[in-house]
Write a protein that binds this DNA or RNA. Structure first.
Length: 416
RNA sequence: CGGGGCGUAGUAUAUCGGUAGUAUAUAUGUUUUGGGAACAUAAGGGCCGGGUUCGAUUCCCGGCGCCCCGACCA
């Protein structure tokens, strides 16, 4: 993509109505735009990142056998009444609205209810189980107070996976498989070293649920980390009894703030019973389906990654989710440098490598460098009179101080 | 929802009960070009409604919006 065609612009100053690092950098870079408190648009650069994260998550969900579908945001209140979760006294962050034709609908905070309802039509025999489905969907939560930039919004993108099993044993086996998938996801996203599987409150069908918490001072949760075991405990369940149960030595724990970037729950028959989702076993008995749900806040991850991986100059995207692989800078209004820069852009794009080419005229070198640092694309390729004299292009990673001259024909393998 | 703060140009800020200033961004021109260049010119602003006043962006009331702390966060 040629930067001269990109409609978004970078800003030198952060907006006065944002304090969180993620919102400041993402807005300054033109990745997102704030519409209202807790509501953000993803602009072309931001959407690329969001889609890249989505794709990583999708691949891992497919790898565990998840089948992707897409459900509506509008939800039928009747279903929620059956599980006793429509009442504002039970769930207070609903967005509810009225149909012109009469009747009330809600904007989905989550999808257990409609999905369980849907499955009553497809699950009838033990032979139909187990399986899992997932989707990427905008969730709506009427938060009392939006905060932390895109990490706690009123509308946000979430991946939600739901599993349907015959019994607890079958469920538990799948639950462990998902744990493995989640670990892979956070590793691929570049925050594996900061992200801990964390024990949190469970519910009636399991002693614990599991959250995935990424260590950051910007986090809203407090966790206690056992570095040796690679796990953590949420403050909400942090008691001596729990520590004993998990066999964790209290003296080894380290307290940290963390961002919840995922959670997995054993739902059991909490939804299948009231919504009558059951299968017939080999003996001809009706048995409620045993369920689990597994969430990942995709848009929140964008914020979490910016919070944890940026430096004082800007964002540092992990390779797997960067909006582009390389950022070509044509320095000065040198005609040859510009021509070569665009040629390089076309060549790499032709090989299927996503590159952004800063071919804008009339900008000082410093301005282009500052923009490149802010945008945080993994490789920076400088094309200038100087680099051409030295026989190529100056290539460096976002995290490196100095680059090296690379010949045109070696660029592709250098940045691969 | 309790408490606190704020609303001035695209963005960030200043001043003032009497002509609203600066930076940056934008446009044009000249010079410049390896870490956010220089000069000149131009265009661009008081959230909405009411009140007090000769006069309100400023003071008062209401609304709307935004931020922070806390509570909340299937």
């Amino acid at each position: 993509m040629l930067q001269s065609n990109l409609f978004t612009k970078t800003k030198k100053e952060a907006p006065s109505d944002e304090v969180s690092k993620n919102a400041e950098l993402l807005i300054r870079g033109g990745y997102i735009h704030k519409e209202m408190a807790g509501v953000y648009s993803f602009l072309p650069l931001g959407l690329r990142v969001l889609n890249n994260i989505t794709q990583v998550v999708r691949e891992e969900m497919n790898a565990v056998g998840g089948q992707e579908l897409h459900m509506p945001a509008l939800q039928d209140k009747n279903v929620w009444e059956k599980t006793d979760r429509w009442d504002d006294a039970k769930v207070d962050n609903w967005f509810k609205t009225n149909l012109k034709a009469g009747g009330e609908v809600g904007l989905g905070i989550t999808h257990e209810e409609p999905l369980t309802q849907l499955m009553t039509e497809y699950i009838s025999s033990y032979k139909d189980l187990p399986f899992s489905v997932y989707q990427f969907q905008n969730k709506f939560r009427n938060e009392m107070r939006a905060k932390s930039g895109i990490m706690r919004g009123r509308e946000f993108l979430m991946k939600d996976l739901y599993s349907f099993s015959k019994d607890k044993a079958e469920h538990d086996a799948f639950y462990d498989v998902v744990k493995g998938a989640y670990k892979k996801i956070y590793t691929r996203l570049g925050i594996g070293h900061l992200t801990y599987m964390t024990f949190a409150s469970g519910g009636i069908f399991a002693p614990f649920s599991h959250e995935y918490q990424t260590v950051s001072p910007a986090g809203e949760d407090t966790i206690y980390i056992d570095e040796e075991k690679g796990i953590a405990i949420n403050k909400e369940v942090y008691t001596d009894e729990v520590l004993a149960e998990l066999g964790i030595d209290k003296t080894k724990l380290k307290e940290e703030r963390a961002i919840e970037v995922g959670n997995i729950f054993t739902l059991g028959t909490r939804f299948s019973e009231p919504l009558e989702l059951a299968y017939t076993n080999a003996e001809g008995e009706k048995i409620p389906v045993f369920m689990g749900s597994y969430g990942i806040g995709v848009s929140r991850l964008v914020g979490a990654i910016v919070e944890t991986l940026s430096d004082d100059k800007g964002i540092i995207w992990p390779d797997a989710i960067a909006p582009f692989r390389a950022h070509i800078l044509a320095l000065g209004d040198n005609a040859e440098a510009h021509t070569k820069a665009v040629e390089l852009h076309d060549m790499l794009a032709g090989q299927g490598i996503d590159v952004l080419c800063d071919n804008r005229l009339g900008l000082s070198a410093g301005e282009k460098f500052a923009d490149a640092d802010l945008l945080g694309i993994p490789y920076r390729i400088v094309v200038s009179e100087r680099s051409l004299k030295e026989g190529g292009y100056e290539v460096k990673r976002r995290t490196e101080e100095k680059g090296k001259i690379v010949k045109a024909e070696e660029i592709t393998s250098f940045i691969k």
